[in-house]
Write a protein that binds this DNA or RNA. Structure first.
Length: 316
DNA sequence: AGGTGTTTACCGCTCT
DNA sequence: AGAGCGGTAAACACCT
């Protein structure tokens, strides 16, 4: 496996399978669902390797989307013009990469398989899609609500209701992946007080992500850049497609107390950085199934998929 | 026409 | 060794 941080990935294949890449893309968007074209865009933006031979890897990626039950297709609503459907992660697929490798899963996620039972999360794809659509609708409401109540939010600031909550982060969230694999010397990742990686410090370690100029000072972690008008408002205003994330997040949901001794660091950072052994998988129970998070064990994805819902509930 | 989605097949690799 | 996973190619159908 290539070792990130030594040589540039500019033209090398990133150490992630298409499944993890796709999951990252989906997780990067507050809506937790993306059309195919935006998944392409996300991958190409962050991994220069994938700017070539697009036909080849995009075919593979489509194959993965269809073939793997961990991805569910969410049809566009009538007021959502555009090609193709939205793709989301199945609510129960959070623990696929139990062995800590983003190249190979321990087990293929199968609907109806041996997923941890979660009575709140439907297992059948159509139901899961419907379930997620409901979450998106609630998320949209919360976003609108937040927009209405945060008129003074400076431009360039994320809206708290859809910013990744300061608490749990899904293992596929790019922040989590970055955090786990590219710890700073001493075990402390280069995270800003917002919980987002300090790209300047990460640049040497993430040349395949940051080295291409795509993630320059204007976009440490650029959100998906697609058109999300499907949800009634341009999500670019939420995600700030390719824009700087807020220096000061506007949390809707009360965040756990910051780590004593690490002022300014979100509580989740020490949870899987300072205390995480090298072998700790981002999807390990400690981080993904809620032993250190409010999420109930066995529903890592639920916690993530409903992170927006949590915000929505907090708002309403 | 081009993008999207599904399916099948094959090969190489890793894990058990 | 066998099973399972990931990557790739290809064909086909559907949709915009």
């Amino acid at each position: 496996m290539p070792r990130p941080g030594r040589n540039t990935y500019s033209d090398q294949k990133p150490p992630y399978s298409y499944i993890s890449l796709t999951a990252m893309a989906i997780q990067s968007c507050p809506e937790k669902m993306l059309p195919l074209s935006d998944i392409y865009k996300f991958i190409m933006d962050r991994f220069p390797y994938y700017r070539e031979n697009t036909q080849r890897w995009q075919n593979s990626l489509r194959h993965n989307l269809s073939f793997n039950d961990c991805f569910i297709k969410i049809p566009r609503r009538p007021d959502q013009p555009g090609k193709g459907s939205f793709w989301a992660l199945h609510p129960n697929c959070g623990d696929m990469f139990e062995n800590g490798s983003f190249l190979r899963r321990r087990k293929r996620f199968k609907v109806g398989g041996v997923q941890p039972p979660d009575p709140l999360v439907p297992t059948k794809p159509p139901d899961a899609a419907h379930y997620l659509q409901q979450q998106q609708a609630k998320l949209r409401l919360s976003a609108l609500h937040a927009a209405a109540h945060l008129p003074q939010v400076p431009s360039g600031y994320n809206l708290g209701s859809v910013a990744p909550p300061s608490g749990f982060k899904h293992p596929f969230a790019i922040e989590s992946i970055i955090a786990r694999e590219y710890k700073m010397p001493g075990g402390l990742a280069a995270f800003s007080a917002t919980g987002y990686p300090l790209h300047n410090q990460l640049t040497p370690a993430w040349p395949h992500v940051y080295g291409s100029g795509m993630m320059d000072s204007a976009a440490p972690i650029s959100m998906a850049t697609g058109d999300y008008s499907a949800y009634g408002m341009p999500l670019k205003s939420i995600c700030h497609g390719g824009q700087t994330l807020p220096a000061i997040p506007v949390p809707i949901k009360a965040t756990p107390a910051s780590m004593p001794g690490l002022p300014g660091l979100p509580a989740h950072i020490p949870a899987f950085l300072a205390n995480s052994p090298q072998s700790l998988s981002p999807t390990s129970p400690q981080t993904a199934t809620g032993q250190s998070s409010p999420a109930a064990p066995g529903e890592p994805m639920t916690a993530s998929a409903s992170s927006g819902l949590q915000a929505a509930v907090a708002v309403h």
